[in-house]
Design a protein around this nucleic acid. Structure first.
Lengths: 170, 170
DNA sequence: GCCAACTGCTTGCAATTCGCAACCGGTTTC
DNA sequence: GAAACCGGTTGCGAATTGCAAGCAGTTGGC
């Protein structure tokens, strides 16, 4: 996590920045859940990140150039976190990790639907998704269709199906 | 790192297993450096992993099914660690991470040559590499050509070039 | 104008993990 | 017979983590 490592290997340097339990979780929520505020990231986290950890990771991610922070014009205390191009470029990494995880780990069906779609779509879909993230986070032109909407809708449907199939648990 | 997380998200589960500073380093050395013994992984590590950390990670990786351990017939004390199919399937993840790292982080030229080749080769090359890893680690048939040799040779050449260009440092 | 709810964090503290170094019994080599 | 090598283990101080509580300033509803 600290930049004290001595190897210039891409894998090593990547792990020095992202090799912990929470950094990629935060980025995942910003990317796929479109969470942009501190409280959003804190309270809507499926994994229950602690506020001090979240504050530390956001600071570190800003320092490392993966995200940026600006004040929210509508609320003097709110800050808005945005992905940078460096953060957006992690889409293929998430796609690869998600695909691996859904194949080998005990994922829940509804949580893995997005990973499945992303894997099926391949690099072409990733590029469209990245274009959309550039619109949402960097003010680039709005793409014609929303990949995020498709992923989110598929996830919502999967949750709905699950809920219908097991009403006792819900 | 502990499996106490509560989300069935593929990314989260992947991070619970691999989300630390060393696990992927160990796998990288086994995969790209063909290091199979404890001492090999310990002393030839560019990053200088500590022996207790290495022992812990190897144990955990075995427990999680990413690698396996068997005794070396040629030496009563040696153990041989092998990648499982689950570990070999991380090739696309390494490719994505390596490509991202080499684009956005201060990598050294010679260390990033393999990441570059892997990114350029795309899924077709990754599959050939995985086939070779299945040969090296799982006893599958030997492929006609060795991707690992190509990557290693390219790396060796890059080091050689570097050494020739800056003899004072070497 | 007033109060409750909400904002992004910070602080304190206990428990876990990390990183370093030294060490260990057994094995192989020379 | 000695030295090097084998895969780890142990001890220990430092850093990190996770949890809970708290905080000053801001906003929205009435």
């Amino acid at each position: 996590m600290k930049e004290t490592g001595r190897s210039g290997c891409p894998i090593n340097l990547t792990l020095e920045i992202l090799g912990d339990r929470w950094s990629l979780i935060v980025l995942r929520d910003m990317m796929f859940g479109n969470r942009r505020h501190f409280r959003e990231l804190l309270s809507k986290s499926d994994e229950g990140i602690a506020s001090n950890i979240l504050a530390d990771r956001l600071k570190r991610l800003v320092e490392n150039g993966l995200i940026s922070r600006r004040d929210d014009a509508s609320h003097k205390q709110k800050g808005i976190y945005s992905l940078t191009e460096m953060g957006i470029a992690l889409v293929p990494v998430f796609a690869a990790m998600g695909d691996w995880g859904r194949r080998f780990l005990p994922v829940t069906e509804q949580m893995s639907i997005r990973a499945e779609l992303l894997a099926e779509g391949g690099p072409a879909l990733w590029e469209r998704f990245m274009e959309e993230l550039r619109f949402l986070h960097l003010g680039a032109p709005k793409p014609a269709v929303s990949v995020l909407d498709e992923l989110t809708e598929a996830y919502r449907c999967a949750v709905e199906r699950k809920r219908a199939a097991e009403p006792a648990i819900a």
